[in-house]
Design a protein around this nucleic acid. Structure first.
Lengths: 336, 336
DNA sequence: TTGAAAGCGCTAACAA
DNA sequence: TTGTTAGCGCTTTCAA
């Protein structure tokens, strides 16, 4: 069986393709009767419109891109859930692109979007991304872009984050309240503004408690899991911290691994808070006190903003800076 | 700046659009010189081809669909990684669709693919999917489809699974060796062939050990996390199993939760093996003995098969039944 | 309320 | 080696 086209419907019904098109799109220019006739035949012949013909003509693809560093991370996985929920509701399709924390790859992906392949972009940038030299600024003039979680602060477009600074502040204060006096912070990257926010919240808490801000208490990591693990070991060995803030899920896991290797007992010798959405956090040994980010909500909100802008050109994306608070979930890794 | 098209290049260079098109596609019909001229101008003007025009004309979209029940599951997340790696290498785009274990939604998604939106499909079906009454059979005549993990055995197309039966056999035997005599199996669904495989491996191990096959030792679950948790509690309370095989990651987590609630001590009172790719399995309390599925490899293999078929129509997809073995990783949840 | 016609940007026969 | 031409399937003026 040939693919059914609008032309075939037109011939069968002795109507023009224009009429068919309008009827299928429920145009009110069309009489109720013909509309019904057309739609019935369409259903009967199992007509499915060719999306690419439509996209070509309308210059819109009903497709958005989600660009993220990785998918095997419960934050991003949940965020995708949120995005997908909204996209499905709006009848949009979701292209997914992984950057693997590599800004070159990210760049290449973004370049492709010049083509009109997608109507809008949801992105959480890599640890290496520096917005300035980034095609992102250019792209944002052609397409609506919404950042979620890992934003570029320099770019005047919508951003959905959690309350990174305050969450880190609260987490650090919690450690202090639990008796920690020498608290280290494991940072994912110098580049990321959300990490800078977290550091700043951490510093604020130390200052308020009158604790010194030792020079090497903040250490930085890359995308190299094995290298990171080694560096965590090194850091823990050198500094003899009594408290740790791990700013990513993977780093939190590395702390468990390092403690196992080094024979450091949590929480007695080291108390740990992790930024993490791990569903297993409560079953870890010891259960992990987490800064639980509203991943699903963030994805959903970001997508909602994007679709609002897609629906209405004049929607001021640049003014949308949504912050959704995280929750400190206290467990055994910070027990006294 | 207007969008640069092939026509604009043609005018600037005083050539025909046909020549431009061929030059850009590195056709050998074109002289080296004009090819260079064209490509240079293209680069200079930052020409980006319109993918939808090309798709419409060529009837191929350089896009594949990945249809999965959920993304917040380490198996599927890793599988996506594998798929994405191959897709990126081949220059394909990846549309992602979540069915949320709902075969109606799955159906709706699959229906859309009649449109030619994608060139091929990678799918892991829902717990409810019954292949027979399923549009899948119909679709598979129009598009190459590769199943991974959750396959439809009835459909004559490529399948990538792990050695479900044997892995379950080994896992069960392991429990028996560790002294279990009353082993329950938590099954995700009656419908899924991979679950039936796992059950059959489990039964085989019991039989070989001369253990009875008690009627309610296999319990079935749905997509309702809360409901499942309750049912797990109920099951554990009623049966007083000394060993459990959890056939999905989520069910394994539910066992931890249920044990906590019921005050059952793992591994003393209950030994547990979970089919799971949780990166935190080794840090759980107790660390979880897992059947670790080769998720990344399975995704990669499935994608590779799909692309092979895309490249070569005559590639006999139906004969590709790849099985990649899982690994039993023994940890404290099955300690004596 | 319907239809004729043009065209979205590209590719592929076929001709030159 | 290059160009002419037609057309992928749809939407959208504009005219009837």
């Amino acid at each position: 069986m040939e693919n059914v086209t609008i032309r075939m419907l037109a011939e069968k019904l002795q109507l023009s393709t224009a009429t068919i098109s309008k009827a299928l799109n429920n145009s009110h220019e069309i009489s109720e009767e013909t509309r019904k006739r057309v739609q019935e035949l369409a259903k009967e012949l199992n007509y499915v419109p060719n999306p690419y013909a439509s996209s070509l003509r309308k210059k819109s693809s009903k497709t958005i891109a989600v660009v993220i560093p990785e998918v095997a991370d419960s934050f991003f996985a949940e965020a995708i859930n949120g995005i997908e929920a909204v996209a499905k509701e709006k009848g949009y399709h979701v292209l997914i692109y992984l950057t693997h924390e590599n800004s070159q790859q990210e760049q290449a992906i973004l370049n492709d979007f010049q083509s009109g392949r997608v109507d809008g972009i949801l992105i959480s940038v890599t640890m290496e991304t520096a917005a300035s030299e980034h095609g992102l600024a250019h792209l944002s003039k052609e397409l609506p872009i919404v950042f979620f979680d890992r934003v570029c602060e320099e770019l005047p477009t919508a951003r959905v984050t959690t309350n990174d600074k305050e969450a880190a502040f609260i987490a650090t204060r919690h450690l202090i309240e639990r008796g920690c006096r020498n608290i280290g912070l494991l940072a994912a990257s110098q580049q990321l503004s959300i990490i800078r926010q977290r550091i700043s919240g951490y510093e604020k808490a130390l200052k308020e408690a009158g604790l010194p801000l030792s020079p090497n208490a903040v250490t930085y990591y890359t995308n190299d899991t094995v290298g990171n693990y080694k560096k965590v070991c090194e850091t823990l060995r050198q500094h003899r911290f009594d408290g740790i803030i791990a700013t990513t899920e993977k780093l939190a896991t590395s702390v468990y691994e390092a403690c196992e290797t080094l024979g450091i007992r949590m929480p007695d010798e080291l108390k740990v808070v992790g930024f993490s959405n791990l569903s297993t956090a409560r079953f870890l040994q010891p259960s992990l006190t987490t800064v639980a980010q509203p991943a699903f909500e963030m994805g959903k909100t970001a997508a909602t903003l994007l679709f609002r802008s897609l629906k209405n050109n004049h929607f001021p994306l640049a003014h949308q800076q949504v912050e959704i608070p995280s929750q400190l979930v206290i467990r055994q890794s910070t027990a006294v």
